[in-house]
Design a protein around this nucleic acid. Structure first.
Length: 518
DNA sequence: AATATTATGAATTGGACT
DNA sequence: AGTCCAATTCATAATATT
């Protein structure tokens, strides 16, 4: 950050004259270069505010000109974006930032990912854009561009490469043979877990052929005896949340929902930018806990800032940011943080406005949303079904929560001919049904099954014979994850040692068998 | 008394680091 | 390899509200 000129390796420099302004800095630019307030004492204060934290004055001036001086939050965001490029800031690597930026421009994430991997690390955004365009053209003619659609975190990707044949979907993973001799880095502890053996032998059998399945299995990489696909919703929304998915869906030519949601906090919740202090460097939200709308942190934080006379010491800053990170608090006023409102969570997660309203208490809503899937992320994975099922699909939805997968399908334009849900939470069932009805769904919704245990072989047989089978089985739950407190909920299925994924396996196999028999 | 909200606890993870 | 650390996570106990 030694000087502003060093940014000439970057592509933002000439925004002042270029019609197509930066894609990253906000393009509103409603305040024209601040000329009117040239002698405003507040301005020099703003400048010194930022220069005192180490930004070059030239750079600060430029960014203020771009964003308007009143908007300190945005100024900081932009400044940091420069800074990150130069210093590869710990909370967002340069590579990730470029990725984010290109995705925001509307490029397909697979394309962005493969372009960035194919090019030098210091390739400019413009060049990357060129590269992607070229790839698109080439693809249109030859279909030979290899797609890389693992999660965008470069470090993780490197890890996968080291681990050897990382393939999506169980079928491909297993069909490579001799799974037992396969080199596994992270899986050594599996032997200790009595749940494992049956799973590893059983799932691959069911993994090929109809029906398609898509299970969300939490975040543990070695919970199961195969490698799921890891995806972080940070590429799809302003919420970062790494999850593992086990599925047998095609992965070629996946696409995203449009419009693509904002990927940063400031874009998702612009009103917070006005109050965002420069030392809170969050760009995205962390995982949304089943958190509550507690007001206590607000009070505590306001007081601690007041104790510092409005200029918190680095230590205080750090503890405040920690607190904010943990509870995903946002700045809604001077020295004031607030929890996210349920409506804001809905929006961030891609659900319709007020989706969870009427689903119970405020706490119920937080709980439901905290466990919910990010719609855009799921939609990306399910998007390939659109081509396969132009006439709509039949879905067996196990523990659908508030219906993330179904909403994703609907938004993809895939008609839901039939949805059978197995959901134990009454609140969730009500939320889902009210969405179904207000959404004017034409298909049939069967939500009378409330307990996974009652989905017996007999019941499955009935379902398959009355409805002709299922095209897709979706299972969403973190309940069998081993991380965090989920481990306590592991025996969701009546204290015995079975985990939810065991049930999934059983159901998958049975449905498959029944459908083949038909 | 019943229901709702808030605070806390604690096992486990991946990754950074040596 | 081993160690450390921040992050993740939901039930439950404790408290507050209706």
């Amino acid at each position: 950050m030694d000087n502003g000129n060093s940014s000439d390796s970057w592509s933002f420099e000439d925004e002042d004259d270029e019609p197509q302004s930066s894609t990253y800095a906000c393009s509103n630019g409603t305040l024209p270069h601040g000329g009117a307030s040239s002698s405003n004492p507040g301005r020099s204060k703003t400048i010194s505010y930022f220069t005192s934290m180490g930004f070059a004055e030239e750079l600060v001036l430029k960014v203020i000109a771009e964003n308007g001086e009143g908007n300190e939050g945005r100024i900081l965001e932009t400044l940091l974006s420069y800074k990150e490029i130069e210093e590869s800031s710990p909370h967002l690597s340069e590579k990730d930032r470029k990725m984010l930026e290109l995705v925001e421009m509307g490029f397909h994430i697979d394309e962005v990912s493969s372009a960035i991997n194919a090019c030098d690390p210091d390739t400019s955004t413009h060049e990357l854009v060129d590269h992607i365009s070229a790839a698109q053209i080439a693809k249109a003619t030859s279909l030979e561009i290899p797609t890389v659609d693992s999660p965008l975190n470069s470090r993780k990707k490197k890890l996968f490469e080291q681990e050897g044949q990382w393939e999506r979907g169980i079928g491909s993973c297993r069909s490579s043979g001799r799974p037992e001799t396969e080199k596994r880095i992270k899986l050594s502890r599996e032997a200790e877990d009595p749940l494992k053996p049956a799973l590893s032998m059983r799932l691959p059998v069911a993994a090929t052929g109809a029906p398609y399945f898509f299970f969300e299995t939490g975040a543990s990489s070695y919970l199961h005896n195969f490698k799921p696909e890891f995806v972080d919703s940070k590429s799809f929304s302003a919420v970062s949340n790494r999850r593992a998915y086990v599925h047998n869906l095609p992965t070629e030519n996946r696409f995203r929902l449009l419009p693509t949601p904002p990927l940063t906090i400031f874009k998702a919740l612009p009103h917070t930018a006005d109050w965002w202090p420069w030392w809170d460097t969050r760009v995205q939200f962390g995982s949304l806990d089943t958190c509550n709308g507690s007001c206590k942190p607000t009070e505590v934080i306001r007081r601690s800032i007041a104790n510092c006379n409005g200029a918190p010491t680095p230590n205080v800053q750090k503890s405040i940011v920690n607190e904010c990170q943990r509870f995903n608090l946002v700045w809604t006023g001077r020295n004031t943080v607030s929890p996210l409102e349920p409506e804001e969570l809905e929006r961030l997660l891609g659900y319709p406005e007020h989706h969870t309203r009427g689903g119970g208490t405020r706490t119920d809503r937080y709980k439901a949303l905290g466990n919910a899937l990010q719609v855009d992320t799921i939609a990306y994975h399910l998007s390939t079904l659109k081509e396969i099922f132009p006439n709509g699909i039949s879905v067996l939805s196990i523990l659908p929560g508030i219906g993330g997968a179904e909403i994703a399908l609907t938004r993809l334009g895939i008609q839901l001919n039939l949805v059978v849900t197995v959901e134990n939470s009454k609140v969730n069932r009500e939320i889902f049904r009210s969405w179904w009805e207000s959404n004017d769904q034409k298909g049939k919704l069967v939500d009378s099954i409330t307990d996974l245990h009652t989905l017996t072989s007999q019941k499955l047989k009935e379902l398959v014979s009355s409805y002709g089978g299922f095209d897709l089985i979706v299972g969403g739950t973190r309940c069998n994850d081993k991380t965090g407190s989920s481990q306590r909920a592991r025996d969701y299925l009546e204290g015995n040692n079975s985990c939810v994924l065991d049930e999934y396996t059983r159901i998958l196999e049975e449905v498959k068998r029944l459908m083949e028999a038909n």
